[in-house]
Protein backbone atom coordinates (compact mmCIF):
# COMPACT_ATOMS: atom_id res chain seq x y z
CA UNK A 1 0.00 0.00 0.00
CA UNK A 2 1.30 3.53 -0.68
CA UNK A 3 2.19 5.36 2.49
CA UNK A 4 -0.08 8.27 1.53
CA UNK A 5 -3.14 6.06 2.02
CA UNK A 6 -2.17 5.50 5.61
CA UNK A 7 -1.36 9.19 6.13
CA UNK A 8 -4.77 10.25 4.82
CA UNK A 9 -6.58 7.62 6.88
CA UNK A 10 -4.80 8.77 10.04
CA UNK A 11 -5.49 12.41 9.28
CA UNK A 12 -9.18 11.64 8.78
CA UNK A 13 -9.38 9.78 12.10
CA UNK A 14 -7.52 12.62 13.83
CA UNK A 15 -9.89 15.23 12.36
CA UNK A 16 -12.92 13.23 13.44
CA UNK A 17 -11.48 13.24 16.96
CA UNK A 18 -10.99 17.01 16.81
CA UNK A 19 -14.55 17.57 15.59
CA UNK A 20 -15.78 15.45 18.48
CA UNK A 21 -13.81 17.47 21.01
CA UNK A 22 -15.12 20.73 19.55
CA UNK A 23 -18.80 19.80 19.26
CA UNK A 24 -19.63 17.46 22.13
CA UNK A 25 -20.34 18.72 25.63
CA UNK A 26 -20.17 15.45 27.56
CA UNK A 27 -16.79 15.24 29.32
CA UNK A 28 -16.56 11.46 28.88
CA UNK A 29 -17.15 11.67 25.13
CA UNK A 30 -14.53 14.43 24.83
CA UNK A 31 -12.14 12.10 26.61
CA UNK A 32 -12.99 9.27 24.20
CA UNK A 33 -12.29 11.56 21.24
CA UNK A 34 -8.83 12.24 22.69
CA UNK A 35 -8.26 8.48 22.76
CA UNK A 36 -9.34 8.36 19.11
CA UNK A 37 -6.75 11.00 18.20
CA UNK A 38 -4.03 9.07 20.06
CA UNK A 39 -4.94 5.96 18.09
CA UNK A 40 -4.76 7.82 14.79
CA UNK A 41 -1.20 8.89 15.66
CA UNK A 42 -0.33 5.32 16.68
CA UNK A 43 -1.50 3.98 13.34
CA UNK A 44 0.65 6.50 11.49
CA UNK A 45 3.72 5.66 13.60
CA UNK A 46 3.32 1.95 12.89
CA UNK A 47 2.90 2.60 9.15
CA UNK A 48 6.08 4.73 9.04
CA UNK A 49 7.97 2.14 11.09
CA UNK A 50 7.11 -0.61 8.62
CA UNK A 51 7.90 1.65 5.68
CA UNK A 52 11.42 2.33 6.96
CA UNK A 53 11.97 -1.30 7.83
CA UNK A 54 11.04 -2.55 4.38
CA UNK A 55 12.99 0.21 2.65
CA UNK A 56 16.16 -0.63 4.63
CA UNK A 57 15.88 -4.36 3.94
CA UNK A 58 15.18 -3.76 0.26
CA UNK A 59 18.10 -1.35 -0.07
CA UNK A 60 20.49 -3.83 1.55
CA UNK A 61 19.24 -6.62 -0.70
CA UNK A 62 19.61 -4.45 -3.80
CA UNK A 63 23.21 -3.58 -3.00
CA UNK A 64 23.98 -7.25 -2.19
CA UNK A 65 25.00 -6.29 1.35
CA UNK A 66 24.69 -8.84 4.15
CA UNK A 67 21.44 -8.31 6.04
CA UNK A 68 22.56 -7.62 9.57
CA UNK A 69 20.61 -7.48 12.79
CA UNK A 70 20.77 -3.66 12.74
CA UNK A 71 19.09 -3.55 9.34
CA UNK A 72 16.35 -5.92 10.48
CA UNK A 73 15.83 -3.71 13.53
CA UNK A 74 15.31 -0.55 11.48
CA UNK A 75 12.06 1.11 12.39
CA UNK A 76 11.54 -0.71 15.66
CA UNK A 77 11.76 2.66 17.45
CA UNK A 78 8.38 3.62 16.03
CA UNK A 79 6.68 0.57 17.45
CA UNK A 80 8.40 0.95 20.83
CA UNK A 81 7.14 4.54 20.83
CA UNK A 82 3.58 3.34 20.15
CA UNK A 83 3.95 0.95 23.06
CA UNK A 84 4.93 3.83 25.35
CA UNK A 85 2.05 5.97 24.03
CA UNK A 86 -0.32 3.16 25.03
CA UNK A 87 1.27 3.05 28.49
CA UNK A 88 0.88 6.80 28.95
CA UNK A 89 -2.70 6.69 27.61
CA UNK A 90 -3.63 4.04 30.17
CA UNK A 91 -2.19 6.16 33.00
CA UNK A 92 -3.94 9.24 31.62
CA UNK A 93 -7.30 7.47 31.49
CA UNK A 94 -7.16 6.41 35.13
CA UNK A 95 -6.44 9.93 36.37
CA UNK A 96 -8.87 11.57 33.92
CA UNK A 97 -11.76 9.30 34.81
CA UNK A 98 -11.06 9.89 38.51
CA UNK A 99 -11.31 13.63 37.84
CA UNK A 100 -14.59 13.15 35.93
CA UNK A 101 -16.02 11.07 38.79
CA UNK A 102 -15.04 13.82 41.25
CA UNK A 103 -16.62 16.45 38.99
CA UNK A 104 -19.84 14.42 38.85
CA UNK A 105 -19.85 14.11 42.61
CA UNK A 106 -19.53 17.88 43.04
CA UNK A 107 -21.81 19.32 40.36
CA UNK A 108 -23.95 16.25 39.50
CA UNK A 109 -23.27 16.57 35.80
CA UNK A 110 -20.54 15.78 33.28
CA UNK A 111 -21.49 18.66 31.00
CA UNK A 112 -18.44 20.84 30.43
CA UNK A 113 -20.66 23.93 30.04
CA UNK A 114 -21.31 23.87 33.77
CA UNK A 115 -17.59 24.16 34.47
CA UNK A 116 -17.59 27.95 34.18
CA UNK A 117 -16.90 28.98 37.76
CA UNK A 118 -13.61 30.61 36.79
CA UNK A 119 -15.56 32.92 34.46
CA UNK A 120 -17.68 34.61 37.16
Amino acid sequence: MPITHYIILSLALFSIGIVGVLTRRNAIIIFMCIELMLNAVNLLLVAFSKMHNYAAIKAAADQKLPITEAILNTGSEGQIFVFFIMVVAAAEVTVGLAIIVMMYRNIHSVDVNFLNRLKH
Partner: peptide
Protein backbone atom coordinates in the same frame (compact mmCIF):
# COMPACT_ATOMS: atom_id res chain seq x y z
CA UNK B 1 5.01 14.53 -1.35
CA UNK B 2 6.75 11.80 -3.30
CA UNK B 3 4.34 8.94 -2.97
CA UNK B 4 6.93 6.47 -4.23
CA UNK B 5 7.42 4.93 -0.80
CA UNK B 6 5.13 1.97 -0.34
CA UNK B 7 4.66 -0.65 2.31
CA UNK B 8 5.16 -4.06 0.79
CA UNK B 9 5.92 -7.26 2.53
CA UNK B 10 9.53 -8.31 2.04
CA UNK B 11 11.31 -11.38 3.28
CA UNK B 12 12.61 -11.03 6.84
CA UNK B 13 10.60 -7.94 7.72
CA UNK B 14 9.57 -9.10 11.17
CA UNK B 15 10.06 -5.89 13.13
CA UNK B 16 6.55 -6.04 14.57
CA UNK B 17 7.04 -9.44 16.15
CA UNK B 18 7.33 -9.86 19.88
CA UNK B 19 10.78 -11.50 19.68
CA UNK B 20 12.46 -8.51 18.06
CA UNK B 21 10.49 -5.83 19.93
CA UNK B 22 11.02 -7.54 23.27
CA UNK B 23 14.78 -7.69 22.77
CA UNK B 24 14.81 -4.03 21.83
CA UNK B 25 12.54 -3.05 24.72
Amino acid sequence: VESASTIEDVKGGDVGFIKRLGKEL
